[in-house]
């Protein structure tokens, strides 16, 4: 064996690599070790450790912050699948704390109340990888330029209403197709319009896709919702309130996992959609005051 094996941790490839391993899977919001075990048993590829799911954050109002480290640690200790946790936008100290707790992925998330209305976390400073929300290509590329190793379209969290997730996924796909179809000399102007660095815009143009994995989030509540997002081109799904705010979380969780794998097979989706009990109560987006729309957070 050679002596100099050139070992490096926290490289972009190692960070994006974990997201690659999560593809085709479901990441579930959990608030207790018991829920985390249930998610793991249902076939979740990762869990998001939270103090409250988005629907409850929305209901409670006030300032939403990073979860208590005791909750995060108890969930980290209860499952063998990767554990994610959320920090506030721009709150790099919450991010430092969560990294020190051994979390596998950080979500700099609009579900929590932003700590900085101008700057996001400089994610290159961290060994732990970050996922960030985006409503469109420009937002996604800005997050990637700040070091995000995974993107998720935002949707509208805690609503059980998939309409915003669809809007954001379609916007992302349309804008990628637009960039891919431009001539080289148009890319400088595209970078200006998107508010994103030219080099990453050029990469999207040359490759016709995002440089990192993109999951869908914010309003997925049923197996058919998950399959819809997969057919629209996302790489996997986050399900927040949709599972543990429903009548039979274990059954629904497993059904959403199966529908995500077999997203093109309507027979499977029909089978797993039977008798799931009550879905979470949905909220119409037009009933949410502008100031309470989480998707508007992030810049």
């Amino acid at each position: 064996m050679s002596e100099n094996v050139n070992v490096s941790t926290g490289t972009l490839r190692v960070k994006t690599g974990l997201a690659e391993m999560l593809k085709g899977g479901v990441i579930m919001d959990v608030v207790t070790p018991e829920q985390a075990k249930l998610a793991e048993d249902a076939g979740a590829v990762a869990v998001m450790a939270l103090e409250r799911v988005p629907a409850d954050i929305r209901a409670a109002g006030g300032v939403a912050r990073m979860a208590d480290p005791t909750i995060v640690e108890s969930i980290v200790g209860s499952v063998s699948i990767p554990v994610m946790a959320k920090c506030r936008i721009g709150h790099f100290v919450e991010a430092q704390v969560l990294q020190s707790l051994g979390v596998d992925y950080l979500d700099e998330s609009e579900v929590l109340t932003p700590a900085d209305e101008q700057y996001h976390v400089n994610k290159w400073d961290f060994t732990v990888p970050f996922v960030c929300g985006a409503r469109n290509l420009g937002e996604a590329l800005r997050r990637i330029s700040e070091g995000a190793a995974m993107v998720r379209t935002k949707g509208e969290p805690g609503t059980g209403n998939v309409v915003e997730a669809v809007r954001h996924m379609r916007t992302m796909t349309d804008e990628i197709a637009w960039v891919a179809g431009l001539r080289e000399e148009q890319l400088f102007d595209a970078a200006k319009k998107l508010g994103a660095p030219y080099e990453i815009v050029k990469w999207v143009h040359d490759n016709g896709k995002l440089p990192v994995v993109n999951f869908s989030a914010g309003g997925i509540a049923t197996p058919a919702d998950a399959a819809l997002m997969m057919q629209l081109g996302c790489d996997g799904v986050f399900v927040g309130s949709g599972i543990f705010k429903s009548g039979d979380p274990a059954k629904r969780a497993k059904a959403i996992v199966e529908a995500t794998t077999h997203y093109e097979n309507a027979d499977v989706i029909a089978r797993v959609s039977r008798n799931l009990g009550e879905a979470m109560v949905g909220i119409n987006i037009s009933d949410i005051p502008d100031a309470e729309r989480m998707q508007e957070r992030g810049w």
Partner: peptide
């Protein structure tokens, strides 16, 4: 855990050429 994930050069038997970069 993920913070310990790494890349390293590997001597991979039977492969032609230099070390293989393992992720």
């Amino acid at each position: 855990r993920q913070v310990d994930s790494f890349e390293a050069d590997l001597e991979f038997k039977h492969l032609p050429g230099d070390d293989y970069r393992g992720v």
